[in-house]
Structures are given as structure tokens and as C-alpha cells.
Simulated assay, not measured.
Amino acid sequence: MDNDAISEMFDSLGEVTIKRMFGGKGVYHQGVILALEVSGDILLKADAQSAPEFADAGASQWVYSGKNKPVAMPYWSIPDAALDDPEELSKWVKLAWDAALRSKK
């Protein structure tokens, strides 16, 4: 996914910075990472407080194969209902931003 398309997804927050990392991209707002682009998919940051909302909306948690076991990361897919609805997407972006801020504390 190109940087312009990624930035557009986060318009509701304002300016984002996109940096290459680990074969993908990190999406930052005010210097805080809130999303990843992995294999063309945007994954939003979640935590113990917001992850249940992502799960209830049908989103999938990013899990990769570690050396001895699967490793679950605190990033979730965007729920399908938000992919074509900018207002709905802004709700999920805000949840990711809130989780990112909580993780900094």
C-alpha cells in the first residue's frame, strides 16, 4: 500500500508519519506508533481495553510464528464494516490512537 493511501486512512487524526520497518511500515502520529502496514494490510494498535471491541467486530489479531510458538502482537485488522466507511474507520483509528497513548504510560 502506498504512503498516500495509508495517510488518507488516518485523516481523522491529522498528519501521520510513515516509516519503513521490518519489511513493512509503521504509522505514527505525534511520534507514537499506532498502526502497521504488513503485506499490504493495515493493522491497528489495540490493548486489553480495546482488543475485545476489535474481536467483537470480527477483526483478526496479528499472530506470527515464533521460534517455538505463535506470537500474538497487539495489532488488529480493520473491521470489514470500516473499510468502505470513513466515519466508521475514524472510530477504529481513534481506538488505535487511544491504545497507543495508553501503551506509552
Rank of each mutant, 00 (worst) to 15 (best):
75 Y>C: 09
94 K>R: 13
22 F>D: 14
6 I>W: 12
101 L>Q: 15
1 M>Y: 13
84 D>L: 09
60 S>V: 12
82 A>R: 00
15 E>D: 10
46 A>N: 06
29 H>E: 01
34 L>Q: 00
13 L>N: 04
6 I>S: 11
71 V>E: 15
99 A>R: 06
93 V>G: 03
34 L>W: 02
61 Q>T: 11
2 D>A: 14
97 W>C: 06
20 R>D: 00
23 G>P: 04
76 W>I: 01
89 L>T: 03
24 G>M: 02
44 L>P: 07
57 A>S: 01
4 D>G: 12
65 S>H: 13
90 S>F: 05
73 M>W: 13
28 Y>A: 02
75 Y>F: 10
77 S>D: 13
30 Q>V: 10
64 Y>V: 11
1 M>R: 15
62 W>Q: 15
54 F>K: 00
65 S>R: 14
65 S>M: 15
55 A>V: 12
105 K>M: 04
33 I>L: 14
99 A>I: 03
93 V>C: 06
31 G>K: 05
79 P>N: 06
78 I>Y: 07
24 G>S: 06
10 F>Q: 06
100 A>K: 01
43 L>A: 09
74 P>L: 04
105 K>D: 02
88 E>C: 07
55 A>I: 12
16 V>P: 06
15 E>K: 10
96 A>S: 05
71 V>K: 13
75 Y>P: 05
55 A>Y: 10
70 P>N: 12
97 W>E: 02
95 L>N: 04
35 A>P: 08
77 S>H: 10
8 E>N: 12
56 D>W: 00
19 K>H: 12
27 V>G: 00
37 E>C: 14
62 W>T: 14
37 E>M: 13
77 S>V: 12
48 A>I: 08
79 P>F: 03
85 D>N: 03
92 W>A: 04
48 A>N: 11
7 S>V: 03
2 D>N: 15
47 D>Y: 00
86 P>E: 02
32 V>D: 02
83 L>A: 13
78 I>V: 10
79 P>K: 00
68 N>C: 01
35 A>K: 02
72 A>P: 14
6 I>V: 15
62 W>F: 15
17 T>E: 08
31 G>M: 00
29 H>P: 00
7 S>K: 15
14 G>Q: 11
99 A>E: 06
82 A>S: 00
17 T>C: 02
95 L>V: 01
51 A>T: 05
104 K>T: 09
90 S>R: 03
26 G>W: 01
94 K>L: 10
81 A>D: 07
46 A>T: 00
5 A>K: 15
102 R>W: 05
71 V>G: 12
